[in-house]
Amino acid sequence: MKLKKYVIYALLIYTGAINAQSYVGYLTDNYNGVHGVLSNPANIADSRLKLEVNLAGASVFFSNDYIGFNLSDAFGNVDTLFDNAEKFPMENNAMALNTDILGPAVLLTINEKNALSVFMRGRLFFNALDINGETLDKEGGFDETQDFTINEGNLSAVSNLWAELGVSYARVLLNNEAHFLKAGLTLKYMQGSGNAYIYSEDP
């Protein structure tokens, strides 16, 4: 039974929705400051902030179609959280993770038309497909003292971890009563930190 819980815990850690953007709901705000450069470098032009220094920020999205629980239960006893959760085991469950860490970053509004930003960023994407939820849902779990078989079929999973150092410049090109246009450019140095891939084919 313990092995079953550990497997579920591990899978939930690597669960998520792979989104093209991070910090959803925040990047489009007029006061998002240096975070706006993550989705579009032009966002920092005409910023409402003259200067912003970001020490650290994190955005994590996770999802899966195997297990679900009420958010209010997540702040209770972890041991009973999964006992009360609703499970949807299938032969092809999926899960994913999108983690975005914004490290030290600076936004400087030079004047009404020009802005500059420098930022550091770390990102982790994980995606797993065709996980056999029936294995996770096995009644009574596994007896760790005995041999047992896990049939996962066509399982595939991939994880990528990398770091970014970016410099962005943005400028307001047109601003009158009828039209507003701005543009931005980001130059990045990207450093890959790790990649892991798992694939199994049903014989």
Rank of each mutant, 00 (worst) to 15 (best):
K5T: 10
V7F: 13
V7E: 05
I13G: 04
Y14I: 10
S22D: 13
V24N: 12
Y26S: 12
L27T: 12
N30L: 08
N32S: 14
L38Y: 02
N40T: 05
A42E: 01
N43T: 05
I44S: 02
V53Q: 07
V53M: 11
F62M: 04
N64G: 01
D65P: 03
Y66W: 11
I67C: 03
I67L: 05
I67Q: 08
D73L: 07
F75Q: 09
N77T: 12
N84K: 14
P89Q: 12
N92P: 13
N92A: 11
N92Y: 13
M95L: 14
N98D: 09
T99E: 11
D100L: 13
G103M: 07
P104Y: 08
K113I: 00
K113W: 04
F119D: 00
M120H: 06
M120S: 14
R121L: 03
L124I: 11
A128Q: 13
D130Q: 14
N132D: 07
N132S: 04
G133Q: 13
F148I: 01
I150L: 05
N151L: 00
N151T: 13
N151G: 09
V172E: 03
L174I: 11
N175R: 02
N176E: 04
N176W: 00
F180M: 05
L181S: 10
G184T: 08
G184V: 00
L185N: 05
L187A: 14
Y189G: 00
G194W: 10
S200T: 14
